[in-house]
Simulated scan of single mutants.
Amino acid sequence: MQQLQFEASWDKAIADQDRQNIERLFNETKHLKDSNIFCSPIREAINHKEALLVTVLVHNRTDRLLTFMNERLLYSIEGEVIADKVFTIPALTIPPGVSMPWTFIFPKDSYTPQIAFENGQLEIL
């Protein structure tokens, strides 16, 4: 049975409204069987450094710990890859059977500028 967990710093800092939205998304997507590891989009934004922020709910449906050590992630909109970056995030480990929200930051030089970034899909290769 898939469980929702928040990384410790998220658990302390997340706004009630955001927590409720993530819990709702988890309940809507926890039974999907798209693949062993998949990401449900939460939001996209461009920050003050012009980095693309992609917040997703990462579902780990495997029987192994998911770590982000030299993991390549692609962000696509309507099948077109617009962001591509290799991430190493020691703080992000997702146990088997757990879904966890996270924001992946694509620096300005790692994505193609777009008019809008909504309705994209983050893929872990």
Results as ranks from 00 to 15, higher is better:
83 A>H: 14
76 S>T: 14
35 S>Q: 06
37 I>A: 09
34 D>T: 15
36 N>V: 02
62 T>I: 04
51 A>I: 04
59 H>N: 05
79 G>T: 11
61 R>W: 03
45 A>C: 00
83 A>R: 14
43 R>C: 00
45 A>S: 14
83 A>E: 14
69 M>Q: 12
39 C>P: 07
34 D>W: 14
71 E>R: 13
47 N>H: 00
50 E>M: 09
53 L>K: 07
78 E>M: 13
42 I>T: 00
40 S>C: 13
72 R>N: 13
49 K>I: 01
59 H>V: 05
36 N>K: 11
69 M>Y: 11
46 I>T: 08
66 L>S: 05
62 T>W: 05
36 N>F: 10
75 Y>H: 12
81 V>Q: 14
49 K>Y: 10
46 I>Y: 05
58 V>R: 00
73 L>Y: 06
79 G>N: 13
72 R>G: 01
58 V>F: 03
50 E>W: 07
68 F>R: 04
65 L>F: 03
80 E>Y: 02
35 S>V: 01
74 L>G: 03
68 F>P: 00
63 D>Y: 01
60 N>H: 04
46 I>C: 04
63 D>S: 11
38 F>M: 07
58 V>I: 14
39 C>V: 00
64 R>W: 04
59 H>R: 00
46 I>A: 09
55 T>Y: 04
40 S>M: 15
82 I>W: 02
68 F>D: 01
51 A>P: 10
60 N>K: 07
53 L>G: 01
80 E>C: 02
62 T>A: 06
55 T>A: 07
71 E>T: 12
59 H>Q: 07
37 I>C: 08
74 L>I: 11
34 D>H: 12
49 K>C: 06
45 A>F: 06
66 L>R: 02
43 R>W: 09
37 I>D: 01
51 A>N: 15
74 L>F: 11
34 D>G: 13
34 D>N: 12
74 L>N: 12
54 V>W: 02
80 E>I: 12
73 L>D: 03
67 T>W: 03
52 L>T: 03
74 L>V: 08
46 I>V: 11
67 T>N: 06
35 S>Y: 01
34 D>S: 11
57 L>M: 11
37 I>V: 15
51 A>K: 05
42 I>S: 07
83 A>W: 14
80 E>F: 03
40 S>D: 09
68 F>S: 07
38 F>G: 02
63 D>K: 04
65 L>P: 04
62 T>M: 08
81 V>C: 10
62 T>G: 06
59 H>M: 03
44 E>L: 00
77 I>V: 15
72 R>A: 10
60 N>F: 07
43 R>A: 10
80 E>D: 15
76 S>L: 13
43 R>V: 10
63 D>W: 02
37 I>H: 09
67 T>Y: 02
63 D>N: 11
68 F>T: 02
72 R>V: 11
40 S>L: 05
78 E>T: 13
47 N>C: 08
82 I>R: 08
49 K>S: 12
63 D>R: 06
61 R>N: 14
82 I>K: 09
58 V>Q: 00
44 E>C: 10
37 I>G: 09
80 E>L: 08
39 C>N: 15
38 F>W: 14
57 L>Y: 03
36 N>H: 12
36 N>L: 15
61 R>Y: 06
36 N>W: 10
59 H>G: 04
37 I>K: 08
41 P>N: 06
64 R>I: 01
55 T>F: 05
